[in-house]
Simulated scan of single mutants.
Amino acid sequence: MILVTGATGTTGSEVVKQLLDMGEKVRAMSRRDTAIHGVEVVKADFDDPESLGRAVDGVTAVYLVTAPAKPIVDHDVALVEAAKTAGVQRIVKLSAISGDEPGSWHLRSEQPTRDSGLGWTILRPGTFASNMMRYAPMIKAGIPLQNWTKGGAVGVIDPRDIAAVAVRALTTDEHSGREYVLTGPELMTFTQQVAVLELVLGTRIATEEGSIDAAREAMLNHGMHPDSADEAVAGMTRLAEGKYAVLTEHVAQILGRAPIDFTTWANDHRAAFR
């Protein structure tokens, strides 16, 4: 049995799908009453140790995704402790490319998994291709998109590739004790991603440069905790400065094929922008 936290999220839903396609037994953890075809769903909360115990009971591996409102590591600690008590064998922790930044929440949230004494794998993906989905309403309405990261480039990755790597790590021992920086096949700026969408959709998409301060203010206006906004702004600043402009071969080495490029992702999801 494999437990998937964040099972209805961007990568978690794809991890569930790919595990089911392999014939694996899957349990999904959710804070709400949720139905997922072919999957046992357990209602649990990171702040409720008893519910976490039920979630990991009889589980051999966990796909761990945490996203607390405030950047704390309590949720990771709680899940890891429950997993150790239940005899879980391995944890695959979703982090981010900013996980190598000293003091960052992503680096701190990795540590409980590393210190667990269990088999562990850390995944540090670059920017998700699916992050562009947040702009779909603006594109449909013809509203200019704010470019917060200027000319900063990153190895944009399809979430399906992140999930595929996670599935390999969840179902074998080959990747225990390893951390992987996961990227797509090419470095792309925000402007280049928009240009691909323009070609795929056959429409002009206006952009304008936005300031980091304005980005933080927008996050706060949407209810984000100030500490979380600061973490997000720090990551955006590093991206704008070119500090995430790296490509790795990890996806190709693990999956035995090239990573999915952004054009393919855009074509596969064009309906969401129309």
Rank of each mutant, 00 (worst) to 15 (best):
G38W: 10
T11C: 10
V233M: 15
L255H: 04
V233N: 09
V156T: 11
M219S: 08
T11F: 11
A163Y: 06
A272L: 13
T237N: 13
I143T: 15
D158K: 13
A163F: 10
T171A: 07
R178C: 11
K70T: 06
R27T: 10
E249H: 12
L239V: 05
A234W: 04
A129S: 15
D45Y: 02
S95W: 05
A69E: 15
Y63N: 03
I122K: 04
A69L: 07
S95V: 12
N221V: 02
F128D: 04
A218G: 03
A258R: 13
G202L: 10
A83R: 03
R168W: 01
A252S: 14
V156E: 01
D48Y: 09
A69G: 15
V196F: 06
H269F: 03
L52N: 12
V251M: 08
L20R: 14
P102Q: 05
R54G: 01
M29Q: 08
A163S: 06
P49N: 08
I72N: 12
A67S: 15
T263E: 11
V181G: 00
V56A: 11
S51K: 07
G184P: 10
M22T: 14
G126A: 14
Y244K: 04
G151Q: 08
Y135G: 00
T171C: 04
E179L: 13
L220D: 09
